[in-house]
Write a protein that binds this DNA or RNA. Structure first.
Lengths: 130, 130
DNA sequence: TGTCATTGAATGACGCGTCATATACATTGA
DNA sequence: TCAATGTATATGACGCGTCATTCAATGACA
């Protein structure tokens, strides 16, 4: 049978493992966020949405789909898109089939920024993930 | 030499890997946070501080040391401790050697809550980390 | 066609973390 | 002993994410 001592050891390992995950998550996310903020004036979440939009160019009614590919809330996505739109990087297009939906398009500026920022993003991922 | 195609494949893998880390991080943290919130009325960060304090019972001048064991900011730690203190789970003790410092002690209630919450916490870690 | 439930998105109140700063104490060195 | 500098924590303004709610458009079905 498992002794109390066994259980404590196991718990300690679990907690260690968790702390190390947290650490590497925060380290990586933080590094990317600061770099993008400094060089391109957008945060990590903004970039991730930009990246998803860039990636799925051409299928319709994005907004909804985005929510499914990100741990962000629907309302968070909506606000991130607000900022991207205000920054002139993305535009919301109404969707003719279903007028509740919207789909997103990169503007020229958005496309340009994305392609530079993506290089940075990939580089930092590589650097941080090993 | 590496072709553009090679680089794109490699980037895609990196991004996949990163999304999967994010996913498992958010899934785990979210699950723990919701459970602790529901059952014990404290958030994940509160628990982590509680857990650190419980773990290091007896060495002096905690506050500072805590900052070094957590990805949280010094000011975040200060505010988490505010809440824990308001909830009566922890108390700040002035430190005689260095009156700028504080060290923290679990109250009875804090100790009790921590030991129940820790069980839940470990269980969810195990469940989510595999 | 007229209800009723559902769905995509936006919004406002709210909590929390961060940054820059403030405050109190400590240390150093002349 | 008195600056000057450094260190431990607290605090206020601010940005962002979340939750609950709202609104418009759709779908289902009698």
């Amino acid at each position: 049978m498992a002794t109390t001592r066994d259980r404590q050891l196991h718990d300690r390992e679990l907690v260690e493992q968790w702390r190390s995950i947290q650490d590497s998550y925060f380290r990586t996310a933080g590094a990317i966020d600061r770099a993008l903020e400094a060089k391109f004036d957008i945060g990590l979440n903004e970039f991730e949405i930009l990246d998803l939009v860039a990636d799925s160019e051409e299928s319709a009614c994005r907004m909804k789909a985005l929510g499914e590919r990100t741990p962000m809330t629907q309302s968070a996505v909506s606000k991130v898109v607000d900022r991207l739109e205000k920054a002139g990087l993305v535009s919301r297009q109404t969707c003719v089939d279903d007028r509740r939906s919207l789909f997103l398009e990169l503007t020229e500026a958005g496309r340009a920024l994305h392609s530079s920022a993506a290089v940075e993003h990939r580089a930092l991922l590589k650097e941080n993930l090993g």
